[in-house]
Nucleic acid binder design. Structure first.
Length: 196
DNA sequence: AGTTGGATGGTCT
DNA sequence: GACCATCCAACTG
């Protein structure tokens, strides 16, 4: 269990950074479905990314969960990270042990500090594509953080979409908690946009 | 502290 | 056959 501290928005087929830009396909079909569903896909042949479908059926939009601050079940997340690392083949047993050692030494805040790492820590895979994240009985679900004091959120440009033309490339559609240790480092967690 | 390149496979033309 | 909504190790300075 954790708190989401970094997300990115991909809005509509007109957004050239979105998987929906090419229209409905077998991979992105869930994005065109009802809101609240999980859209899970594989990137770079080895990492999964978890999104939440946000707009009514027919309009493709989703929010990518980029980072989660672990709050409970930290041992399970760590074990899942080790398991995900071990699952990769083509590496010698020695390097596998080294990577396992490195994960064991990781601070809890860094267990899900990136979109691929979120899925590794929470054991999210392609088989979770289409799940209803609003189902209170589901193992994988969203909950309202009741009782928490509101967190400061700031914005910045989205990460890893250099192929997208302006103005989309610079749209401040990445939202994160500035200074939070669990925000992804690739995104440069000390940077912040206009709003504060 | 910042940059670079390799791993790796599903998906679409 | 090209293209990735990434991560990490191994470099440079």
């Amino acid at each position: 269990m954790g708190r989401i501290v970094e997300v990115e928005a991909y809005i509509g087929q007109e957004d050239p950074a979105s998987h929906a830009r090419i229209g409905r396909t077998a991979r992105n079909a869930v994005m065109f479905g009802p809101p609240g569903a999980a859209y899970v896909y594989l990137v770079y042949g080895m990492h999964h990314c978890l999104n939440v479908v946000t707009e009514p059926e027919g309009r493709a939009a989703a929010v990518l969960i980029r980072a989660v601050e672990p709050l409970a079940g930290i041992d399970a997340m760590r074990a899942a990270r080790v398991g995900a690392a071990d699952a990769r083949r083509g590496r010698g047993a020695q390097t596998a042990e080294l990577s396992s050692r490195r994960i064991e030494a990781l601070p809890a805040a860094r267990l899900a500090s990136g979109p691929g790492l979120v899925c590794a820590a929470f054991s999210v895979a392609r088989t979770d594509d289409g799940l209803d994240l609003c189902d209170p009985d589901s193992d994988l679900r969203l909950e309202i953080a009741a009782g928490d004091e509101p967190l400061l959120v700031t914005t910045g440009p989205r990460i890893g979409i250099d192929y997208a033309p302006e103005p989309w490339l610079s749209k401040p559609w990445r939202f994160f908690v500035p200074g939070n240790d669990s925000v992804s480092t690739a995104a440069g967690r000390n940077r912040h946009g206009a709003a504060s």
